[in-house]
Design a protein around this nucleic acid. Structure first.
Lengths: 208, 208
DNA sequence: AAGTAAAACTTACGCCGCTAGTTTAATCAT
DNA sequence: ATGATTAAACTAGCGGCGTAAGTTTTACTT
């Protein structure tokens, strides 16, 4: 086949197929040949639409970030906005955990990533936080959200019970797997509460 | 060469060389052939000492975790111990950032990882925290430490100034790179303060 | 109508993790 | 002491990887 009458590929179709593949089978399963096969095409054809595989992965990551709702930042005071955004971000990443390692590297040049940083940082600065402090808060939020999404804490322990003979306090670790959602959510929400309440106290302390 | 009089390889030598390579050039640079070359040997020879490459990577990760000081947990009250441990853990990861993606997946079956979990969880439970809450706190600490070590926040932004024309609040983002250590440290310490102070308040609240 | 650009293709290079089978030395059992 | 087994290196090779190069055909531009 040479150039077809109707193009077989578009950037959108490629990103969608790549996202589906990553969600279903993980980042390691995303190879150029495999992705091309899903699209009914030979591997190198993808290079007519993206310069490198990394650009495809980046586009997948940004498509996920695009799903995060940023509208709260114009509508609510910073503490509620921050909480609401962090929960939504966390929820989106929970649905697409396999792409999180990419997001954890920062926004780079990705438009949705930069737009999100702009919204968060802008809201904090506009609310009266000093820019340096707002940067810290933004960083901290990324640490919590990506740290929690990067790998389930509860599923991070091997489930072989014999493994824990020498770690007496951990004897229930294999049982964590059964409740991993509740454990991970509990930890994330605890962290979010502590951070936002603490920040609020600091903020009001400097105001008065 | 067949079997030499003195074995060329040991697990320790392999892990040390792999760790050096990962530290110097990143996880992607660690290939079986490359590592073998560093050790003056052919690639498949490594399989006489480790069943898979993943086991080598795991051993590198555990060697890093082994460096974290756990002695504080027997010596100080839980808030100081938690802070001191988290700072030490954070410091160790700062020196070996390339292995963090592995640690972020949890301890799995790695002995030093499990010993660390045992120490943290045990100290919290022994101090009076309910086990479920202690689990949340342990998870939260991992989120913060690995989240912050996984990728510098300050270096996560592209330094091309033109990129920020459409993100007015971020116009100073390219300057973050110059102070990335201070920014990242500031965010981590802010988070640690907020979490531990908040936990302390909760703990004393339930005691009274 | 001619010229150019786009989008598919095939081929190929140098990497990758790992398996299989071979050789030789060291160690263990009788 | 010797014979058998195990250990630790080797070579050869499989299937997969990202991607560069060059080819063909179609579509768009002038």
């Amino acid at each position: 086949m040479a150039r077809p009458k109707q193009a077989l590929l578009t950037r959108e179709r490629i990103v969608a197929a790549a996202g589906t593949l990553v969600d279903a089978e993980g980042l390691e399963a995303l190879s150029v040949r495999r992705l091309a096969a899903e699209l009914g095409v030979q591997g190198p054809s993808l290079y007519n639409h993206f310069p490198t595989k990394a650009d495809i992965v980046d586009a997948v990551a940004d498509a996920v970030v695009e799903q995060v709702d940023l509208s709260v930042f114009g509508e609510k005071p910073w503490p509620e906005a921050l909480r609401s955004w962090a929960q939504d971000y966390h929820g989106v990443l929970t649905e697409h955990p396999n792409i999180v390692p990419v997001l954890a590297q920062g926004p780079g040049r990705r438009p949705a990533g930069l737009a999100m940083a702009e919204a968060v940082f802008g809201a904090l600065v506009d609310a009266g936080w000093p820019p340096a402090r707002a940067t810290h808060i933004g960083a901290l939020m990324r640490y919590l959200v990506t740290g929690s999404a990067l790998g389930s804490f509860a599923l991070g322990f091997d489930i072989d019970p014999d493994l824990y003979d020498r770690y007496p306090h951990l004897h229930n670790a294999p049982r964590l797997a059964a409740h991993h959602q509740a454990v991970d959510e509990g930890a994330f929400n605890l962290g979010l509460d502590l951070l936002i309440n603490g920040l609020l106290a600091q903020f009001e302390g400097t105001r008065r």
